[in-house]
Amino acid sequence: MNPKRNLIRLHFLLIAVLALQACGAANAVKRAETIEQKAYAAEGTYTIWSEKGIELIERGNLPDNISLRLIQVEEQATPVVDSLSDSLEEFELVKDEFEAGTTGEERLIIASNSLNSWIERALPLITRLKAAVKGAQ
């Protein structure tokens, strides 16, 4: 067999092992306990991957079609993550009011459900961006 090909296969294998190692840990969302922490963890995870994606594009080694794909994923995901952020802000306000006794439980439940739904919407988009960055790959 062609030794050059073997060398290439070995390197691809090495990359795959390292990628698997990286996937197994460092999951901020899993380490969060409350809904606010989960929202913040999702937002932070997205922000980090978003920055990595643009750094990759700016290095200039990616083919244009892959860069454009990353840009498209970011354009679709960022408004959702911004809404998640707004929803977290709103939840914190309502929670403060609830704790101060100036609002009822019903409003807190509504804010909580809304935040939860934004987290649910954002998570697949975060996975998509992460896959686009890794898989630009």
Binding site: F12, R31, A32, A41, K52, E55, A136
Partner: peptide
């Protein structure tokens, strides 16, 4: 391209680990 991605992936992993610890 792979080496760039690996480098970014490594940096992202380190940053994610740090962020996960903050959370």
């Amino acid at each position: 391209i792979f080496s760039d991605l690996l480098e970014e992936g490594d940096e992202a992993y380190e940053e994610m680990k740090e962020f996960a610890e903050t959370v």
